[in-house]
């Protein structure tokens, strides 16, 4: 993963001189590393080491002492949505390269954690991902084959995913420690609600059709299934904080399997 240092970089480090601007190769290397930003995720430093890992190619041209100090700073605790970690990597790298006061860099780093986590969670995990799942399930419901369904899902999801990662790194590098206004983008403020409304109508549209394809010979009991689903969903929505649906489903399924075997 490590690339050999250029002579110019080594020379700049020895001299302690001004580093060269970030090159396209360094940005590309950082972008690729961002896909592994959660590689050493843990409950203590969370994504901290991944931030330093992704930022390393961008900091290469710093003088030796500042390079190590910056890496040490950036490897500490950090938490963010992985797709928006590029905003932190880009802006903090720009701060380090511009020679900002380390105290200011650290303060800004701490301040970035919350917004990058909550904005990404709402936009991606609670918005874009379920919508893409529903789009793929719609294709399944309409009778599409395995290849088409998988391509629709992966194509749609990753168009948004990769665009968001690329935007994050670019805007971070361009704006440095003044990146906060970029997070006030209408996409982040209005996007989650808009995605939720589209998901709601799409879910209503495809649920009966997808279930029709799954139920197969059980369609003789379709009415009963619908009633059970409505009652069950209300119970889950009411007590969702205390019980996850998939664990409850496993419990009920275990009983059903035992009943079927014992019968």
């Amino acid at each position: 993963m490590t690339e050999p240092e250029s002579r110019a970089t080594q020379s700049a480090r020895r001299d302690g001189g001004t580093p060269a601007p970030v090159g396209a190769r360094a940005v590309a290397a950082s972008f690729i590393r961002l896909f592994a930003v959660q590689g050493s995720w843990n409950y203590e430093t969370m994504v901290g080491n991944g931030i330093a890992f992704s930022m390393k190619p961008l900091l290469r041209n710093l003088p030796e002492e500042r390079y190590h100090a910056a890496l040490a700073r950036q490897a500490r605790y950090f938490n963010a949505h992985p797709y928006l970690a590029g905003v932190a990597v880009g802006s903090l790298a720009r701060g380090e390269l511009d020679g900002e006061d380390p105290v200011r860099v650290e303060r800004y780093r701490t301040a970035l954690c919350g917004p990058l986590g909550s904005v990404g969670d709402q936009l991606v995990w609670a918005g874009w991902l379920p919508l893409c799942s529903l789009m793929a399930l719609a294709a399944f419901a309409l009778g599409a084959g395995p290849l088409v369904v998988v391509c629709i899902f992966l194509g749609a999801y990753n168009a948004g995913h990769i665009a968001l990662r690329a935007w994050g790194l670019r805007v971070g590098l361009r704006r440095g420690l003044r990146v906060a206004p970029a997070l006030a983008n209408p996409l982040f403020r209005e996007g989650p609600a808009a995605l939720a409304r589209i998901s709601a109508v799409l879910a209503g549209l495809i649920l009966p059709l997808a279930l029709q394809r799954i139920i197969g010979p059980g369609r003789a009991l379709a009415g009963g299934v619908a009633v059970v689903a409505v009652i069950g969903a209300v119970i889950l929505a009411r007590f969702g904080a205390r019980a996850t649906g998939w664990r409850a489903a496993l419990g009920l399924l275990s009983i059903f399997v035992l009943y079927s075997v014992a019968r």
Partner: peptide, 8 residues
């Protein structure tokens, strides 16, 4: 089961 969890 799937419909219940999905609707929830």
């Amino acid at each position: 089961l799937a419909a219940t969890v999905a609707a929830g």
